[in-house]
């Protein structure tokens, strides 16, 4: 007889499309957890998020309001869902929804007994693209030099000083490599018309992209960390295949980041390794990446650990993992009855 607890866990990011959200990967790890059993509640924004229809992974799905509808509306919807499902733990998986969830963290825990393990608002804001360069300087982490620019004049002065090629980035999304001042100006206009100002000009770093998926306990201890090198990249820049690697320097850098920033919750660190062997931190994503199932495959079920932290269990840091485990992503056509689409579309539940 099993004395394992059974948790009801809600998960967002069910958009398992060609540029996938992390939801399904998180659920696969949850299903393999040794220390508890799960019932999975899917939270979807759109009625065509594939996870909604993957009944072998998701027991029940509910539509939730878009982040732009505001925290109050989100809270009410979660209260309604919780009333039916008694959710124990929740995984927000989208960058855009994290702000609201971080702010709602205490209320969800106190009023609905829904636990989450998330970075603090300060940690969340400080690692934002716009602030990353300062962040690196503060914590002594190498970050490609980057400057915010607001005008054409600023742009040409900054790009000239940094030299070409330079990366021209939007505040939220989009990044282009510019090889000439003309190109830089072009991207400046292209991005600013879409995402507004400022535009970020970043030093271009040549090298191989390597990423780390991990969990920090909020007191400076790394609970788990697995580095991965992308093997194959889609035309959207997403990893389609990757391999776990045992890169000591990368792990050391990760431990340093977690220790100094007292990072709490899951993270993905995106690094560029130069031919000289230097590691530059390009981005910190404050959530699990879509490839996080690889960490479970490599022997660290970080998703399980995160739940246990949230449920107040003692979790030992894990250092071991198998290098050389690969993930290869595939897509699949499911056959779905129109009635199911009707249900999620009209009553918002399936």
């Amino acid at each position: 007889m099993s004395d394992k607890p059974k948790y009801t866990i809600a998960v967002t990011g069910l958009n398992a499309i060609d540029s996938p959200g992390p939801g399904i990967a998180v659920i696969k790890s949850l299903k393999e957890a040794q220390s508890f059993d799960v019932r999975i509640i899917g939270l979807s924004y759109e009625n065509l998020e594939p996870g909604v229809f993957m009944r072998h992974y998701v027991d029940k799905s509910y539509q939730v309001p878009f982040p732009g509808a505001g925290m109050e509306v989100l809270f009410e919807r979660l209260a309604y869902i919780n009333h039916i499902e008694q959710i124990d733990f929740l995984f927000p998986n989208f960058d855009a929804e994290l702000f609201n969830y971080i702010k709602l963290q205490d209320r969800l825990s106190q009023e609905l007994q829904i636990e989450m393990v998330l970075p603090t608002l300060e940690q969340f804001e400080a690692r934002h693209k716009v602030n990353l360069y300062e962040y690196g300087q503060k914590y002594d982490i190498k970050v490609p030099r980057s400057e915010m620019v607001f005008t054409e004049a600023d742009l040409s002065a900054t790009a000239k000083e940094m030299g070409f090629p330079a990366v021209i980035k939007g505040k939220f999304y989009d990044a282009y490599v510019a090889y000439t001042p003309d190109q830089a100006l072009n991207y400046f206009h292209k991005i600013s018309s879409k995402w507004g100002l400022p535009i970020i000009v970043q030093q271009y770093v040549y090298g191989t992209e390597v990423n780390v998926c991990g969990v920090g306990d909020g007191h400076g201890v790394t609970i788990g960390a697995v580095p991965m090198r992308k093997l194959y990249i889609t035309d959207k820049g997403k990893a389609w295949a990757g391999v776990s690697i045992d890169d000591e320097e990368l792990l050391e850098g990760t431990n340093k980041m977690v220790e100094r920033t007292k990072w709490r919750g899951p993270f993905e660190l995106e690094y560029m390794k130069t031919s000289e062997g230097d590691y530059y931190l390009l981005e910190i994503n404050p959530r699990f990446p879509a490839w996080c199932y690889l960490t479970t495959g490599a022997g660290q079920n970080q998703v399980e650990d995160l739940v246990n932290i949230g449920m107040g269990k003692k979790v030992e840091p894990k250092k071991e993992f198998a290098a050389g485990k690969m993930f290869v992503r595939y897509s699949e056509d499911m056959i779905v009855d129109l009635e199911e689409f009707e249900k999620i579309s009209t009553v918002g539940e399936l």
Partner: peptide
């Protein structure tokens, strides 16, 4: 219309 991307009554910013 329902399936034009981002529409669900539980989702859009509704007032």
């Amino acid at each position: 219309p329902l399936n034009t991307g981002m529409t669900n009554k539980f989702g859009t910013r509704t007032e």
